[in-house]
Design a protein around this nucleic acid. Structure first.
Length: 595
RNA sequence: GGUCCGGUAGCUCAGUUGGAUAGAGCAGCAGCCUUCUAAGCUGCGGGCCGCGGGUUCGAGUCCCGCCCGGAUCACCA
């Protein structure tokens, strides 16, 4: 890399010119801003205490020295305290040539070290996936891919919350009012069917509570004593006791939900290496709690509930087991974490979970540490912001929840509508066009969500998300299709670009800026992996596509008369399309050959 | 009230460890298709970077205080 070579040279320069030994970190090398001449810029302000000279004088001296000593530097200029260096076109060309020859440009080979286990999705089996899960799934999947690209071993896991009071509510409602309905008999997707019964339970329960309040009962008391909730609680106790009938119904209804989830996941393009079920981990959690109780790390209240005191850690007291002995969310998560650690001995246990649960994960880490688990330090909560709608948050009671399946369907449908208005695909087979609309619709959705920094609350405006112009997934897909079209035409004309002829070329401005952007790709992947931020990949892809479009408009490729230049531009186009594919692949977005 | 996160153009968002005159897209206006895909390109207008102090040669970025918005502090998950 030219940057490290420059740092080395600057260290030497400072030593010769100013007789000073310095650490390389003092040299700030950045890309020259486009309004100035040059490729790379050295900020000389921090060096003034070494030179004891004015900024311009220091910059000039260093520039002169670098010109003489570093062959890649072909010129420099100084503006205020900024030393702008011009890097030889031959350097960029040789970079380009070697990058093209690489098998996985931008990716690092997998390192031999413990894996990162990343959990995402984490659905409940009482309701279908919605917009919030969409952000979660896309983020988790993409971060996993980015980490892999950066050389990590990654295990993608899902944690299905398949047990608990909420599932009992759906089960109870189905028993009471379902009349034996199934996905098969109703033709409804299993997760939707079960979700409907959960909603039905809530409705009937609310009615009961209201009835009790009308009879003069206190509202809080009514909420606890309504017959339906008592029945649900009883069912949960039976479930934990292993009651055969309850377990049978539970298994059946969950299987409906899983079949439904699978369809959603598949369309969304996310997958998992392993799936954990809370029904299989909560006992392990309970065991951990008992052990902690024996060792006096936790304590029991008179009513039998078990707690962990975290007031010394600046937190509160936390419930770990209910008075009736059933487990809570935290109990399960303790067990799941332990199991996951035992399974993989990972360097990091990552959880992609919304920021509403920041406190929960802080507590989880502390409780595990209290239990003496040193690996708890490897727990990392990748906390992302909520997705809001133009009219505020999603509220199931107000019917503003955006269903994941419907959302994807709508995106594909809009892609179809827009495409047919442009009237481009008359020669496509129905399969080809369906495939394309899916690619465009899902690409728009994924890009819209992933381009926002994960930790920020984001606004999901359905109309804007479906827009195909500007900073969108479609823009990048279009750029790719455009490049592929040129390459097809070249091939049809019998042109096979020769990369031996480009050595002596002098680069046009747009050619050089395109190469420089391609040069940034590996460090962009690295930075995105460090920051766990697919947004950085999205922004890079957009920059690259935009730069290519400018190149495309300013210079002709196939009509270029000089065959060396023509070939070079073809190669540059081809490589750009490849990097776009790689980058967007990290976001789970496919790029079409035509659109 | 305690803790955590955010506040950048009318709207949605970028802005590396502090560096040059704070950038995109959308929306608005004006241009560019007999030439490789106009889902594109070019130009114009639009900003007390929430407010006030501080550190620094230099602050959207770091520190302190305040204002506003959100999350959380459940025998819900």
């Amino acid at each position: 890399m030219i940057e490290s070579k420059l740092t080395e040279a600057l260290t030497k320069a400072v030593k010769t010119l100013y007789q000073q030994e310095v650490k390389p970190a003092i040299f700030q090398i950045q890309k020259t801003r486009p309004e100035f001449e040059g490729d790379l810029t050295v900020v000389v302000f921090p060096l003034l205490r070494l030179s004891h000279k004015a900024p311009e004088a220091t910059a000039n001296e260093l520039g002169q020295w670098l010109m003489e000593q570093v062959e890649e530097i072909t010129g420099f200029n100084v503006i205020k305290g900024f030393l702008n260096l011009e890097i030889a076109g031959t350097y960029w060309l040789s970079f380009f040539k070697s990058a093209m020859a690489m098998e996985h440009f931008g990716f690092q080979p997998q390192r031999d070290e413990p894996p990162v286990v990343i959990e995402y999705s984490s659905p409940n089996t009482n309701k279908p996936l919605h917009l919030g899960h969409v952000r979660n799934n896309l983020l988790g999947w993409s971060v996993a891919e980015i980490l892999k690209a950066a050389g990590k071993k990654v295990i993608k896991v899902n944690l299905v919350n398949d047990r608990g009071i909420h599932i009992c509510k759906s089960m109870l409602a189905w028993q009471k009012w379902g009349n034996g309905i199934t996905p098969q008999t109703s033709g409804q997707k299993g997760d939707k069917l079960v979700g409907d019964f959960y909603v039905l339970f809530d409705k009937k329960y609310k009615a009961q509570v209201a009835g009790l309040v009308k009879q003069g009962m206190d509202e809080k008391e009514a909420a606890q004593k309504a017959p339906l909730i008592l029945e649900a609680k009883e069912m949960l106790v039976k479930w934990e006791a292993g009651d055969a009938a309850v377990r049978k119904l539970w298994k059946e209804m969950n299987s409906w939900v899983y079949a439904g989830f699978d369809i959603t996941y598949q369309r969304m393009g996310v997958d998992f290496d392993n799936i954990y079920y809370e029904s299989q981990t909560y006992l392990l959690g309970k065991a951990l709690v008992s052990k902690g109780l024996e060792e006096n790390i936790f304590y029991k209240k008179e009513d039998g509930s078990v707690w962990c005191d975290l007031t010394n850690e600046g937190l509160d007291e936390k419930l770990l087991l209910r008075a009736d002995g059933t487990s809570v969310y935290m109990t399960q998560d303790l067990g799941t974490a332990q199991l996951r650690y035992d399974d993989y001995h990972p360097q990091k246990l990552m959880y992609v979970v919304g920021n509403e649960q920041n406190y929960h994960f802080e507590v989880l880490k502390h409780v595990l540490k209290k239990l003496g688990k040193s690996w708890a330090d490897g727990i990392y909560h990748l906390s992302y912001g909520m997705v809001e709608l133009p009219h505020g948050k999603m509220k199931s009671r107000e019917g503003t929840v955006v269903d994941a399946d419907e959302l994807m369907e709508e995106m594909a449908a809009t892609a179809q509508k827009t495409s047919s208005e442009l009237g481009k695909f008359d020669d496509f087979t129905p399969e080809e066009s369906a495939n394309l609309f899916e690619m465009i619709g899902l690409g728009a959705l994924k890009y819209f969500i992933l381009k926002v920094d994960p930790k920020k609350t984001m606004l999901f405006n359905p109309e804007e998300s479906i827009d195909f112009n500007g900073n969108t997934g479609s823009f990048i897909q279009y750029t790719h299709a455009r490049i592929r079209s040129v390459l097809r035409k070249a091939k049809a004309a019998g042109i096979t670009p020769d990369n031996e002829r480009m050595a002596g070329l002098s680069l046009e401005k747009k050619e050089k800026s395109l190469i420089k952007l391609l040069y940034d790709f590996p460090q962009t992947v690295e930075a995105a992996a460090t920051a766990y931020s697919p947004a950085q990949i999205a922004n890079y892809s957009y920059e690259l596509a935009k730069e290519y479009n400018q190149f495309y408009h300013e210079l002709s490729i196939l009509k270029e008369e000089d065959p060396a230049k023509r070939d070079f531009r073809l190669l540059l186009s081809g490589f750009t399309s490849q990097v776009l594919r790689t980058a967007m692949g990290l976001l789970g977005i496919q790029l079409p050959e035509r659109m």
